[in-house]
Design a protein around this nucleic acid. Structure first.
Lengths: 248, 248
DNA sequence: GCAAAAGTGTTCCCTATACACCCATGG
DNA sequence: CCATGGGTGTATAGGGAACACTTTTGC
């Protein structure tokens, strides 16, 4: 572990990333498990450099921890409780990993880490099928969990996920945000299933395409011939404005 | 001016309050003007004590600067640009107010104030008719401005107001938030005009009451006899859950 | 031709709007 | 009884859902 407290971070502000993906008709979140004794799960988190936008910090943390870059990012909530610190978490971690605080530097790190932090929550939308998340050295594993089967995480991270889902739902109506969860090309049925999954309600199959298409953000491509003995659906593409599409 | 930099604040985090009121069928924002040469308007802003929730800080700042307390508060946006600092503003202020930096303490304050700050935006909803906003000593005046006639403020404060309005509109649908802008008792027509003002669209007069009433949050009181030669409308009350209603 | 899934059309229902009408109130 | 504005009923339009139907595809 490097000396984190002296790298020019803004004090007492942390960034937390809820990374959404979509697979098997389920909304999933990418959660790393820390490489320590004791089953600690935690959202990819980090701090903000003095000369860095918080948006940039979220992107950097995401890439460092998962290898994922160039994704859609949205800040959704800032957690500001005075009691918000990682002392409970770190004490439990140290209890189960006795050699963690074996020198003066690390003890100073402990003090730094366990102060009260204001946490800025970001959610990311990625194309799970195209993205290969790679754990880095501080993680034991990194896995996609369906939103209703996320392990117990440290601090308020489970609450952050809940708030992220709520924001995602609210944003679905106003912004054309959902397409970021789909692969480069997709069928209208896949779009509908995605909306039904996230909003937990079903839509009529005849009106849904009309409503989506009149957003005027989808490009219709050629049909998708799968070899199956049925009518081939059209493929659509969501031309991404700023970001290039995600290729791990 | 006291020594602000040493009072146990969280470093580089600021709070900004957009205070909404409603009067004369207009949505208004309460904006103080600083007691300095040079026409500086700025949202009521401040910092967060180490042992204080950010929500508490927003409440405290609101009360210190305006005398208003016990209002509905909602955090709506966190501004995180690396370039976000008040150096331009303060340099202009010092230029126009030469005696501002006349001792060492104040010069140190200047350094503290002009660092990069992460700004947490809150909006408050108050009953403008019942609330008497009181300027404190650092303000020259404090006034209600219609949202489309707000003076040019410092830093990104105008943008904060725009984002606050957007959030307020989005929240109107999901939460029963608007009643906080009305007096203790009000007629259905007043509710409708409020919604029409904020959302900038009109509603049919027959269904609107039905939709509002089936929220089951309003209490119908006796009729309102104004002495005018017409049918007296019913008065309604919004029983506030946690907060007591605002009396300056 | 047949099965499977895509895509479309018809009908129905619900909600919101427009408009008309009735009602309470005070002069 | 009349003017005023609150409140309510009726007809209509639009959007979404259910259901049935047509179309495309490969065997």
């Amino acid at each position: 572990m490097h000396i984190i407290s002296q790298q020019g971070y803004i004090q007492q502000v942390s960034i937390h990333c809820v990374i959404f993906g979509y697979q098997d008709k389920q909304l999933k979140v990418l959660v790393p498990k820390l490489h320590f004794q004791g089953d600690f799960w935690a959202l990819p988190s980090g701090f903000v450099y003095q000369d860095e936008d918080t948006d940039e910090a979220a992107k950097r943390i995401l890439e460092d921890r998962t290898g994922i870059k160039d994704v859609y990012l949205e800040s959704f909530k800032t957690m500001g409780k005075a009691s918000r610190n990682s002392r409970n978490f770190l004490d439990r971690l140290i209890e189960l990993n006795p050699n963690t605080l074996d020198d003066e530097t690390k003890r100073r790190e402990y003090e730094w880490f366990t102060r009260r932090f204001i946490g800025i929550g970001y959610y990311a939308l990625v194309d799970l099928n195209n993205v290969v998340a790679q754990k880095n050295e501080i993680d034991e594993s990194i896995e996609w969990y369906p939103v209703n089967a996320i392990p117990q995480m440290i601090m308020d991270h489970n609450q952050l996920v809940d708030e992220a889902i709520e924001s995602l739902r609210a944003d679905l109506d106003r912004k054309r945000v959902a397409f970021h969860l789909l692969p480069e090309t997709f069928t209208m049925k896949e779009v509908q299933e995605l909306y039904e999954t996230i909003l937990e309600k079903s839509f009529a199959a005849n009106n849904f395409p009309k409503r989506v298409l009149e957003l005027n953000v989808l490009e219709r491509l050629k049909k998708k011939f799968t070899g199956a003995a049925n009518k081939a659906p059209y493929l659509y593409r969501f031309p991404k404005q700023n970001e290039s599409s995600v290729k791990n």
